[in-house]
Amino acid sequence: KELVLALYDYQEKSPREVTMKKGDILTLLNSTNKDWWKVEVNGRQGFVPAAYVKKL
């Protein structure tokens, strides 16, 4: 599985998104969309802005 690092805090704005804190390590589930990547964090799956994370 591929991991990404949260570069910034992000507060979810819809049920399809997830909240993350700067420094969190997230599991990358899908990065086919250039703007929104699907990740898993704390057992929850959802989208975060691709610009807010970096592949490890």
Score class of each variant (00 low, 15 high):
residue 12 E to V: 06
residue 27 T to V: 14
residue 35 D to Q: 13
residue 13 K to R: 12
residue 4 V to E: 00
residue 48 V to Q: 00
residue 14 S to H: 13
residue 37 W to V: 08
residue 50 A to Q: 06
residue 40 E to T: 06
residue 33 N to W: 08
residue 43 G to V: 04
residue 45 Q to V: 14
residue 13 K to G: 08
residue 44 R to W: 04
residue 21 K to M: 09
residue 34 K to E: 12
residue 38 K to F: 15
residue 23 G to Y: 04
residue 43 G to A: 07
residue 37 W to C: 04
residue 47 F to K: 03
residue 36 W to Y: 08
residue 14 S to V: 05
residue 20 M to L: 10
residue 12 E to R: 15
residue 20 M to F: 13
residue 56 L to A: 05
residue 40 E to K: 06
residue 52 Y to L: 12
residue 19 T to K: 04
residue 19 T to N: 07
residue 18 V to P: 01
residue 45 Q to L: 08
residue 51 A to T: 12
residue 37 W to P: 01
residue 3 L to E: 08
residue 55 K to H: 10
residue 20 M to K: 00
residue 21 K to S: 10
residue 11 Q to K: 13
residue 40 E to V: 08
residue 23 G to I: 00
residue 50 A to D: 01
residue 3 L to I: 10
residue 56 L to M: 11
residue 14 S to Y: 07
residue 8 Y to A: 12
residue 27 T to A: 11
residue 34 K to P: 15
residue 4 V to A: 13
residue 32 T to C: 14
residue 6 A to Q: 01
residue 29 L to H: 06
residue 26 L to N: 01
residue 49 P to K: 04
residue 49 P to M: 03
residue 9 D to F: 05
residue 15 P to A: 13
residue 36 W to M: 07
residue 52 Y to C: 09
residue 52 Y to K: 07
residue 55 K to Q: 09
residue 56 L to W: 10
residue 17 E to G: 14
residue 2 E to Q: 13
residue 54 K to T: 13
residue 33 N to D: 15
residue 6 A to C: 11
residue 45 Q to A: 12
residue 46 G to V: 04
residue 18 V to D: 00
residue 11 Q to W: 14
residue 19 T to Y: 04
residue 30 N to Y: 08
residue 44 R to D: 04
residue 3 L to N: 06
residue 7 L to T: 05
residue 44 R to T: 08
residue 55 K to L: 15
residue 36 W to L: 04
residue 50 A to W: 02
residue 30 N to K: 07
residue 53 V to L: 15
residue 44 R to A: 07
residue 42 N to I: 06
residue 9 D to S: 10
residue 50 A to N: 03
residue 16 R to D: 12
residue 41 V to E: 04
residue 42 N to W: 09
residue 10 Y to M: 01
residue 19 T to R: 06
residue 3 L to F: 15
residue 4 V to R: 03
residue 46 G to T: 02
residue 3 L to K: 11
residue 18 V to W: 06
residue 13 K to D: 06
residue 8 Y to T: 09
residue 17 E to R: 05
residue 11 Q to L: 12
residue 12 E to S: 15
residue 8 Y to W: 11
residue 40 E to Y: 08
residue 26 L to C: 11
residue 5 L to E: 13
residue 24 D to E: 12
residue 53 V to T: 05
residue 34 K to V: 11
residue 42 N to R: 12
residue 11 Q to Y: 15
residue 34 K to Q: 14
residue 9 D to H: 06
residue 2 E to D: 13
residue 1 K to S: 11
residue 47 F to N: 04
residue 15 P to L: 10
residue 1 K to P: 15
residue 16 R to P: 06
residue 15 P to E: 14
residue 22 K to L: 06
residue 55 K to Y: 11
residue 55 K to W: 08
residue 44 R to G: 04
residue 11 Q to S: 12
residue 51 A to G: 10
residue 50 A to T: 05
residue 56 L to E: 04
residue 20 M to R: 00
residue 20 M to E: 00
residue 9 D to M: 04
residue 30 N to P: 03
residue 46 G to I: 04
residue 50 A to Y: 02
residue 11 Q to I: 15
residue 53 V to P: 00
residue 55 K to S: 09
residue 22 K to Q: 10
residue 23 G to C: 08
residue 26 L to Y: 12
residue 9 D to I: 02
residue 9 D to V: 02
residue 43 G to T: 05
residue 25 I to A: 03
residue 46 G to M: 05
residue 2 E to I: 14
residue 49 P to I: 02
residue 5 L to A: 06
residue 37 W to K: 02
residue 51 A to W: 09
residue 15 P to F: 10
residue 22 K to N: 04
residue 19 T to D: 04
residue 36 W to P: 00
residue 26 L to G: 11
residue 24 D to T: 08
residue 5 L to P: 01
residue 14 S to M: 08
residue 21 K to G: 05
residue 7 L to S: 03
residue 11 Q to A: 13
residue 34 K to H: 12
residue 22 K to R: 12
residue 47 F to D: 04
residue 5 L to T: 08
residue 24 D to L: 06
residue 33 N to E: 12
residue 29 L to G: 01
residue 56 L to K: 04
residue 12 E to P: 14
residue 12 E to H: 10
residue 2 E to F: 14
residue 2 E to V: 14
residue 5 L to N: 02
residue 36 W to E: 04
residue 3 L to R: 11
residue 51 A to C: 14
residue 19 T to E: 04
residue 54 K to H: 10
residue 8 Y to D: 08
residue 49 P to N: 02
residue 39 V to R: 00
residue 43 G to Q: 06
residue 6 A to H: 01
residue 28 L to G: 01
residue 28 L to M: 04
residue 32 T to A: 13
residue 13 K to C: 11
residue 38 K to W: 14
residue 22 K to D: 03
residue 42 N to D: 13
residue 38 K to M: 15
residue 16 R to V: 12
residue 9 D to C: 05
residue 29 L to V: 12
residue 35 D to C: 12
residue 15 P to D: 13
residue 6 A to R: 01
residue 48 V to T: 02
residue 39 V to A: 02
residue 43 G to S: 07
residue 35 D to L: 15
residue 42 N to S: 10
residue 26 L to W: 03
residue 30 N to S: 13
residue 10 Y to G: 00
residue 29 L to N: 03
residue 13 K to E: 08
residue 19 T to L: 03
residue 41 V to S: 14
residue 27 T to E: 14
residue 46 G to C: 04
residue 32 T to G: 11
residue 52 Y to D: 03
residue 9 D to K: 03
residue 22 K to F: 05
residue 26 L to H: 03
residue 6 A to I: 02
residue 31 S to V: 07
residue 46 G to N: 01
residue 43 G to N: 09
residue 49 P to S: 02
residue 54 K to L: 14
residue 32 T to M: 11
residue 6 A to W: 02
residue 53 V to W: 01
residue 10 Y to Q: 01
residue 4 V to M: 05
residue 30 N to I: 09
residue 28 L to C: 07
residue 47 F to C: 10
residue 56 L to N: 04
residue 10 Y to L: 02
residue 16 R to G: 13
residue 43 G to C: 08
residue 33 N to Y: 09
residue 52 Y to A: 09
residue 28 L to R: 01
residue 1 K to C: 12
residue 43 G to E: 08
residue 23 G to P: 00
residue 8 Y to C: 12
residue 44 R to H: 08
residue 9 D to Y: 05
residue 35 D to G: 10
residue 52 Y to H: 07
residue 28 L to S: 02
residue 9 D to Q: 04
residue 55 K to T: 09
residue 6 A to K: 01
residue 10 Y to F: 08
residue 24 D to S: 08
residue 7 L to Q: 05
residue 19 T to C: 06
residue 53 V to I: 10
residue 41 V to K: 15
residue 7 L to A: 04
residue 7 L to I: 10
residue 29 L to A: 03
residue 9 D to L: 02
residue 25 I to V: 12
residue 54 K to S: 11
residue 23 G to H: 05
residue 16 R to A: 13
residue 34 K to Y: 09
